[in-house]
């Protein structure tokens, strides 16, 4: 048993790297990713498991990092928005959000992009209803969602195009 307020040394597999961190069991994954790993693309919004801004991928699937203790993530592969693309070379999903105006303030965007990316990895050609259902755990207070849905449809088309050119 790890005693109350005692720290424990853990290794988190984040964005393909092993991060050694010393954490209290009560520390949330969202806070550890931001403070200990410096991954500020993990946005902390409501902190109550509602808004989805803190979404990261756990073994490729979206989860809320504010509803998980960092110690629970040991042994899993974590992906944050920092791993998707760079300013010069955006991921097709990020590029599509830009082109379709799928963001205004941008606070929800890392979570949106990661949820959308996981969807397209599993289902390369989702219909609009599937996209809306899949994004139902990510709240946006700016856009009214339509442009976000458009962005995911555009991202699907871009990825199909890229795959065709690569083939």
């Amino acid at each position: 048993m790890v005693a109350t307020e005692e720290r424990v040394a853990i290794t988190l597999a984040v964005n393909g790297r092993d991060e050694q961190v010393s954490v209290e069991p009560r520390w949330l994954l969202s806070d550890v990713l931001r403070r200990e790993c410096g991954l500020k693309g993990v946005h902390v919004g409501c902190e109550h498991g509602v808004c989805g801004a803190c979404t990261v991928l756990l073994d490729g699937e979206p989860i809320r990092s504010c509803l998980m203790f960092a110690v629970q993530a040991v042994g899993h592969q974590l992906t944050t928005v920092e791993a998707l693309g760079t300013a010069d070379h955006l991921d097709p999903v990020q590029q599509a959000f830009w082109e379709a105006h799928g963001l205004q303030c941008g606070f929800c965007t890392p979570g949106m992009v990661l949820t959308a990316r996981a969807l397209l990895d599993r289902n390369p050609n989702p219909d609009e209803e599937t996209i809306r259902e899949t994004l139902s755990g990510n709240l946006c207070r700016c856009t009214g969602y339509q442009f976000i849905v458009d962005a995911v449809l555009l991202a699907a088309a871009k990825r199909a195009e890229d795959a065709e050119q690569g083939a």
Binding site: V2, P25, R26, L28
Partner: peptide, 9 residues
């Protein structure tokens, strides 16, 4: 957000 401390196993 830091929650109340707990022991963990």
């Amino acid at each position: 957000m830091t929650l109340a401390a707990f022991a963990y196993q």
